[in-house]
Design a binder for these strands. Structure first.
Lengths: 241, 241
DNA sequence: CGTGTACTTGAGTGGGCTCAAGCAGGGTGG
DNA sequence: CCACCCTGCTTGAGCCCACTCAAGTACACG
């Protein structure tokens, strides 16, 4: 029984073999045919700046593999304020926290242009329930996300550290790739919602860093803009008491 | 084949049937005999104020079910500072995050007197690997911990909220039981490490709340001391902008 | 009864907040 | 093509909360 290869099933745009989710899925129990089957129903989507991949309390309809761009995960305070608790980049998977619940825990929103492919939730669940090893893998992933969230929040939201230090740490975490100096450039309101400070303070701190040449603005539109960062300088600031 | 009942295997002190971990474990796949077997090797421990249940980077040797008291989970900054990222109370399980790794991710330390029982890690792993459903349950538990940590950190560490508001929120989260007004009374340094503010500020804010009668100090020694809180008043303060 | 640790309280400083105005630049419509 | 607007960003002035440094107090324990 021959099958159409995954790249075609994914409408020729997704490169499913790069996908983190695929690495999650592949193990000794899973055959290539199953994997190809798995790609059935996967759809690609483009999102403009500010568009929601999914919203809090909406029925869970899939998990999303981010293929390009950055996605902010937003949590709403009981008091009304909103807080960005995590940022997903290329290769990350969105919605896993809600994959076994009825509705999404958070809102996921595109920052700049985003490309993502969606795995329908029914298929995801079926696949997981049929492959015991996957549960263990997902468990490890979940624990890794927990660690990541702990350090994200504990390093960026320390009240008694200066806004400048926390901003430097944020910039280092928003690097597009692990090896380059290109940094996702969020809006000032977004950065404020991450660090738990005001937009004015964010603007002041960023302006200082730009004036000092530690950050360089690039790109025109919201969709394509970025920073280039002087990484050693940022690391030095990030270490300051 | 008759077996000694769990309460006896647990040296007569643990009431294993109250344990959260047990609820985690019990499902259709697990028979009573297996459950009794599971209790083999479980030991009870008492910890004084400040004693470590386990330390970061120490080899994983078990998971701990907290039977009495409060345990702080400490994470060490790369910079050197320490931060309390979670607090476990009666019925919670400590060390699950590290159950499938070689060493502990965090340090767990007793606040006041603590009683806990330890499940040896080899037995825990064996048991989990033999019962497929458990992995799914642990996955859900892990995701619940993730949610809890997200809201814990995002509600308590907002920089632009007053220390008083955040302290009120912390007090509400440190309640010994869900229905009473008794509150775990941590040291000022500990509360500072949770909220990301200085110990002096903690002292000032707590002193104010005590003077206003919203908090009432009780107990003498570190081991037994506590607050009683005026919950409606605390909730009002917690809601303030 | 002395000693140490944890906590309290004060005075002064400063970083980040608030309020408010000005600016830049991309998009729209005339 | 320009005028306009609208949104997001910048910058300023003044204030206030929390930090720092420092001294004083309470209390548990030997």
């Amino acid at each position: 029984m021959t099958r159409i290869p995954p790249t075609v099933r994914c409408q020729g745009r997704s490169n499913c073999f790069d996908c983190t989710l695929r690495h999650e899925m592949v193990c000794s129990e899973v055959t290539l045919n199953e994997l190809i089957d798995f790609h059935t129903g996967i759809e690609d989507f483009d999102y403009d700046h500010g568009a929601a991949l999914f919203s809090k309390d909406a029925p869970t309809e899939g998990v999303y593999c981010i293929r390009h761009g950055a996605v902010k995960i937003v949590k709403y305070d009981p008091v009304g304020g909103q807080r960005i608790i995590r940022v997903l980049k290329k290769g990350d998977v969105a919605g896993l926290e809600s994959a076994f619940g009825d509705s999404y825990e958070h809102t996921a929103m595109a920052v700049g242009e985003v490309r993502a492919c969606r795995v329908p939730i029914e298929y995801f669940r079926t696949f997981v329930s049929q492959h015991g090893n996957l549960q263990m893998r997902l468990l490890r992933t979940s624990q890794a996300t927990l660690r990541e969230t702990e350090s994200w929040l504990s390093e960026l939201t320390v009240g008694n550290l200066s806004a400048r230090t926390r901003m430097a740490r944020l910039m280092l975490r928003l690097r597009v790739t692990d090896d380059g100096d290109r940094i996702h450039r969020f809006g000032v309101e977004d950065m404020a919602a991450i660090l738990g400070i005001t937009a004015e303070t964010v603007s002041r701190v960023v302006s200082d860093l730009v004036r000092e040449g530690i950050l360089v603005k690039g790109g025109k539109s919201f969709a394509t803009r970025y920073f280039r960062g002087d990484l050693p300088a940022l690391e030095k600031i990030a270490r300051e008491a």
